[in-house]
Design a protein around this nucleic acid. Structure first.
Lengths: 256, 256
DNA sequence: CGTTTGGTTGATGTATGTCAATATTAGTGG
DNA sequence: CCACTAATATTGACATACATCAACCAAACG
């Protein structure tokens, strides 16, 4: 995956700034890494928070716990993601960020990053990119939750994870398997359905020879079929850059 | 509503910049207003788009139409909102923005705004604020769609509209009625339910003496009850700044 | 090797969807 | 201002996707 694929959608005149910003931020946060155990809360809801993070290893999620016990994973963060960038601008994050697995993450005091953000437009651009990209994911997820059936949502999510892992070079572009550490209940809290129903949908997917999710690992037996199941919910961008990344690449770029 | 309420959540050291940025952007886009008829598309999906908008009058919405006809209103824009700010950074918006009513909006070429954005940090801050605020709304809506029942979502939405109209000074802080031009099907497309079900929920709300939605107007008969119905889904920020703005203000600040 | 945590499966309940008929309102041209 | 039409909303009968409850199984783990 080239940088231009990773930063697709962005105005091409900013590509250089994005790539430089990425490197500069990496340099800024170097050696600041901390480890966090699974289940721990990285950013507490409704508190002033001082750090911006760059996830190196492990998965995390932005989550909102309602007073009656309902819980929603709003967004899932994968290695390479910058998160809590908004700490630079707002005092109170209304949602928590929790570690889904044990994780390693670098972090930086928001004031330090903000100083760099003001001084260096490459860094600013990379930060803004993250916010804009996060918003794009939220748009897609609103569409998924609002219009998708449980099966469509699950298929979309499995495709999305794969696409993002490929773009961040965590897995190979043609890989049909990846680690996915969410429990079924955590998946359910992201999908807006119950854990029991997640189990049923996954059984169905497994029995139909489409994809197997077991022991923290996703194994796609029929990528076309999975993409098909998700396709109604995929936006045009995702259809091109994500759905068929890998073995379908030749075919897909052939129609362009 | 003071500016500090409007820009609540933001780091207080940026409040001055936000207020100045607001004024500077208003000056920049002055005299650029266009009128757009209801139902027209302002920003087409998947096309390069050149403008950033500031809505003066009327309502608009970001929407995604799926190939099979399903449609999701992702976000609703009210007067005072800046939208398509992301045009400055990305070439393709994956979703369309359509006029819900006839509307009047100012607009500015993204290159011109970007020049100002780079040159003037007040303008940059105001733009970023809009993106961050939009993201906050998306977070809340993901929680609503993922965890809320149809009744909770409707109550939340009616409360949200009122809160935003108050913050933008379109209606008085103690007002219990406001214009709401969405049809039931449009509401349904935002709420992730069907038009028929919207009708039933609204009938129920009406019959229980809580709130009446009729002829493009919302009339709240029992604000406490409505806030209560939405409360599980409200985040802490919304509970303070929005839910009880107005007649409940004294009571609510009394417990603080 | 018992205990916890996560997953599976069946029986049953319910919120919401679908279909279809009718009522109401808004828009349009004469 | 009326008559016609199209759009929107209401209501009822019925269907279904998903939730709930509960029992059971299988790893993982101290």
């Amino acid at each position: 995956m080239s940088d231009s694929a990773r930063f697709a959608l962005h105005r091409p005149e900013f590509l250089g700034a994005l790539v430089r910003g990425e490197a500069k931020i990496a340099a800024l946060v170097k050696e600041s890494s901390i480890t966090v155990p699974a289940r721990a809360t990285l950013v507490e809801a409704n508190t002033d928070h001082r750090f911006v993070y760059r996830l190196l290893k492990g998965w995390a999620g932005r989550t909102r716990l309602l007073r009656d016990g309902r819980n929603q994973f709003i967004l899932i963060f994968l290695p390479g993601d910058l998160f809590a960038v908004k700490s630079m601008f707002i005092t109170h994050q209304t949602d928590a960020v929790v570690a889904i697995t044990d994780l390693i993450t670098e972090r930086i005091d928001y004031r330090k990053l903000h100083k760099a953000y003001v001084a260096d437009s490459d860094i600013a651009m990379r930060c803004i990119w993250q916010v804009v990209e996060e918003e794009r994911r939220l748009h897609s997820w609103v569409v998924g939750l609002g219009q998708g059936s449980a099966e469509e949502r699950v298929a979309l999510l499995l495709m999305d994870f794969r696409g993002r892992l490929i773009l961040s070079k965590t897995i190979a572009p043609d890989s049909l398997t990846y680690n996915m550490p969410l429990t079924q209940v955590q998946l359910a809290d992201h999908l807006g359905i119950t854990g029991v129903h997640v189990s049923r949908v996954l059984k169905d997917f497994r029995d139909s020879g489409m994809v197997t999710v077991r022991d923290g690992r996703v194994t796609i037996a029929n990528l076309d079929m999975l993409a098909q199941r998700a396709s109604a919910l995929l936006d045009a961008y995702e259809r091109v850059t994500r759905a068929y990344v890998g073995e379908q690449e030749a075919a897909s770029s052939a129609h362009d």
